[in-house]
Write a protein that binds this DNA or RNA. Sequence first.
DNA 1: AGACTAAACGGACTGCGGTCCGGTTATATT
DNA 2: AATATAACCGGACCGCAGTCCGTTTAGTCT
Lengths: 202, 202
Amino acid sequence: MTSIPFRSGPDQAAAAERSDAARNRKRLLWAAKELISECGAGGLTMDRLAERAGVGKGTVFRRFGSRAGLMLALLHDSEVDFQSRFMFGPPPLGPGAPALERLVAFGAGRIAYVVEFGDLVLAAEDASRGRFDVPAAALWHRHIEVLLDDAGFDADSWLMAGSLGAALDPERLLDLVRRHGVAPERLVASWRDLVTRVVRPA
Amino acid sequence: MTSIPFRSGPDQAAAAERSDAARNRKRLLWAAKELISECGAGGLTMDRLAERAGVGKGTVFRRFGSRAGLMLALLHDSEVDFQSRFMFGPPPLGPGAPALERLVAFGAGRIAYVVEFGDLVLAAEDASRGRFDVPAAALWHRHIEVLLDDAGFDADSWLMAGSLGAALDPERLLDLVRRHGVAPERLVASWRDLVTRVVRPA
DNA sequence: AGACTAAACGGACTGCGGTCCGGTTATATT
DNA sequence: AATATAACCGGACCGCAGTCCGTTTAGTCT
């Protein structure tokens, strides 16, 4: 699936990670979840995490590279789940439904995902240089592009996929939901409207 | 125009700012431009700025509130210029042209603006909690919304305006131009395509 | 078992944005 | 001119993400 720089399957790690490293990774992820459920994602600092997990700060950064990397690791499981649902799961999200319906379902799924994991998603995007490095982002982009093509879109589908993806930007979605009290269903309706118009033949 | 928390007209400041404050603001803005032209926007730190301007660090934050506020102040003139062009200037950007053409022109203008002031715009968006506080953002949003209505858009024009605005997100635009080598004209073409499809009657 | 090595460890350190508060100074008032 | 006061000034200080490097240790080879 998406290639992540560090092992993350809870069991598979196999022949490449020392036992103390594995033990510390577990401790760190556990402590991170604990801290987040206590203080929210914003209350998780790298120092506190290191202390709580009983490891040195250097170890935290060795494992996850950055705060954003840690958040990505915490999201990894649900991320993979969502990915496999829209790539291999049942229609209309997965293959088998008309492209337009899949596009609508994709947006709806993404909106639900962002609403559910709010702060984590936000924190994961910080990765200094760009939220376009998030490996999953390339996948979504490509997915939208392919669906556009399938739906008979006849212009620059690569750029259009990016524009549509921007409408699903987590920061925007969460701002609408949290600060403007917009109901997620209304977001889904607007997304449906958007993609329908974009795909609709001249 | 957009209400900015600190005085910024080079002359008008009038009856509310002590002379030493005015002098220091000038020094700071001057030093900021100097530093940016030497080291780029990324090389401007608040400490360096304070030192270069010969003032204390506290003064910098008193004047501009944050790094993002400083960047906003640096952009203020060109921002106001752009705003008055699309609000009062000649068509197709200003009033007088059909709504769809104005929408296209607005996107083109914004793209050109972002490409020109790249790093500054990026730095101005950092404002910790959200890039939706930037006073100008509300104006663009409203502008797009009104143009959508004028063009006969018959659905949730407020949310649609936000979705379209997201396609003009500076971080995205600059990533496309700088890291993917996309020509600005291609961005404009894609924007035209997007708004045309969105506005096009069923 | 003993020695070797590459990997992992930990915590002091840096540079950053941002805050705080005691001292200073411009301006209005009498 | 003397006084009062509100605004301003400066730089020590804080918490943060991220780096560096000397030390320890797990896994391997003989």
